[in-house]
Design a protein around this nucleic acid. Structure first.
Length: 486
RNA sequence: GGCGCAUUCGUCUAGCGGUUAGGACACCUCCCUCUCAAGGAGGAGAUCACCGGUUCGAAUCCGGUAUGCGCUACCA
């Protein structure tokens, strides 16, 4: 029987979750779910200096928001905890001790200052920078001496000087590196914390991870990991390095490319289902045509065999389109509920709060197919909530009209509207359309003027429905105000 | 610099020896239409990075070159 598949996502709490990280998490999650395996969340907080307060909470919140649920990890527990590396220091220290004892690693007493000087010198002489292995073969006496000086050593990996280290990657195939270019990298820092390299291999082993899915940037350090697996006598997991996510200038996607954290996308009104669908298509495809897929369909169809090797540029225009598709597919009530917080947040603060949900419920169907993001709603609907309309009087005068003809048209229209027995979209259209003919105007001329008068905008939802919701009183008031000014 | 990897429309991609190189976003035109969207119908856009080879035949296989990206920390 094949062992149950276990994948993990191991973010470092240095800030909000990056879309690239979410993509990695998504693939690991899809792979686990597709195979009825487990998805484990582990926090890699081994860099005390880079740790950011509140980042763990933010990461958890973001994962929950996009719907990537974890079977083991912070807040849910599991059989292989704790799932926060700073709480597992003993494991790493024990592993480091064992490696030194076996002769696969050694204590290094070189100061950061010396390493810096060394590097500077190497760069100056145009040599590849790297540790010169000064402490690799220290004698017992020399070590004693350093210890007596009170230096706390780091533990470095004693990499083989010759030979090659090769491994198989599910996505990249067979990859091999010459050991001569490998460095004696630090495994355990002087503060007692492990580096990524050590922590990741002991935890993946302890947590029985079967498949390591991570970004391509780790490909180069994978030989170290294999060396460590071998030294620790661990069975290495399968590896799948995912192609990078790039910004529009083809460099690694980062802050300077604009919004890259998942919280930014959330605030900008993107739907988690759109983000998931979009991200799934960056580096993976089902076939030559299918693009819109539900979470269930993604799970059912995902496979590492169809992950590509080429880095993908994050194309926000396509995300915008896809977000629009998902917005339009929402049930009206769902759309309403999701819109509320954006209206509360972005409508001018002097408008009465809380907003009337019943009123908003009438409006939302008018904009659901017109916005690309939820954050676009307040701007398109603000005239529903305020009488303070700001617009140029010029925009009242539509094509081939004059101030006089506009005033006349609005005056007549006002009269008809006032006399209308019922003020709903159907009757509005029933009187305004014939009125245009009567006034020898094209429908667009009359409606355009009315639109500006009533909404203050040249771009707005359909006029009659808009007027119905606004109500007769408001519409007449707004028209009267125009008549005074024009 | 060293090492590793990659290279199909502007972008995301399909393709895994024989296709008019397919789809999607964006763009353009037209239709629908009270504006904007949405929707419908079309269009333009890729000498498959380049050069050699293998083969009857190459985007697909093999070399080399170029370009790009990643790694090269007591960061992950």
């Amino acid at each position: 029987m094949r062992p149950i598949i276990r994948t993990r996502f191991a973010p470092s709490p240095t800030g909000a979750l990056h879309v690239g990280s979410i993509r990695t998490a998504l693939f690991a999650w899809l792979f686990a779910r597709h195979n009825s395996g487990s998805f484990i969340l582990r926090i890699e907080d081994t860099d005390v200096a880079r740790k950011v307060e509140g980042a763990v909470e933010s990461i958890l919140e973001s994962l929950r928001w996009v719907g990537l649920d974890w079977d083991e990890g912070p807040e849910v527990g599991g059989d292989y905890g704790p799932y926060i590396q700073s709480q597992r220091l003993g494991f790493y220290q024990e592993a480091a001790r064992l490696l030194v004892e076996q002769g696969d690693a050694y204590y290094c007493y070189c100061s950061p200052e010396r390493l810096e000087e060394l590097r500077a010198e190497q760069v100056k002489r145009k040599q590849p920078p790297g540790y010169d292995r000064r402490c690799r073969d220290l004698s017992e006496e020399e070590r004693k001496e350093k210890e007596d000086e009170g230096i706390t050593p780091v533990v470095r990996l004693k990499t083989p000087l010759t030979g090659r280290t090769g491994f198989h990657d599910i996505i990249w195939g067979d990859v091999a590196f010459s050991n001569s270019i490998l460095e004696d990298l630090v495994l355990l820092k002087s503060d007692g914390y492990p580096t990524y390299h050590l922590a990741n291999i002991v935890d993946d082993h302890e947590m029985k991870i079967t498949h390591v899915l991570r970004a391509e940037e780790w490909l180069s350090s994978t030989p170290y990991h294999f060396l460590l697996y071998k030294a620790m006598d661990y069975q290495p997991p399968e590896f799948a390095h995912l192609p990078m996510l790039l910004g529009s200038d083809r460099s690694k996607l980062g802050k300077r490319h604009g919004s890259v954290s998942i919280t930014d996308f959330r605030e900008q009104g993107y739907l988690p289902e759109a983000i998931v669908n979009f991200l799934a298509l960056l580096g993976w495809s089902l076939d030559d045509k299918t693009e819109l897929m539900t979470r269930q369909e993604l799970i059912a169809n995902f496979s590492l065999e169809r992950v590509s090797k080429t880095a993908a540029i994050f194309n926000q225009e396509k995300l915008d389109w896809m977000n629009g598709v998902y917005i339009r597919s929402l049930e009206p009530e769902d759309f309403l509920q999701r819109s509320l917080s954006f209206l509360e947040r972005d409508l001018p603060p002097d408008m009465p709060r809380p907003l009337s949900v019943d009123y908003v419920r009438q409006i939302m169907p008018l904009v659901q197919e017109r916005v690309k993001t939820l954050a676009g709603i307040p701007e398109l609907t603000r005239f529903f909530f305020t009488d303070r309309l700001e617009y140029e009087t010029d925009s009242l005068i539509t094509r081939d009209m004059t101030a006089d003809s506009t005033r006349h048209a609005l005056g007549v229209a006002r009269q008809r509207l006032a006399d209308l027995p019922t003020f709903d979209a159907q009757s509005l259209e029933g009187t305004l359309r014939p009125l245009a003919v009567e006034l020898r105007l094209r429908a667009g001329q009359l409606f355009g003027t009315l639109r500006t008068a009533v909404t203050g905008q040249t771009v707005a939802p359909p006029l009659f429905k808009t007027m119905e919701i606004l109500g007769r009183e408001t519409c007449l008031e707004r028209i009267d105000r125009v008549l005074e000014k024009l």
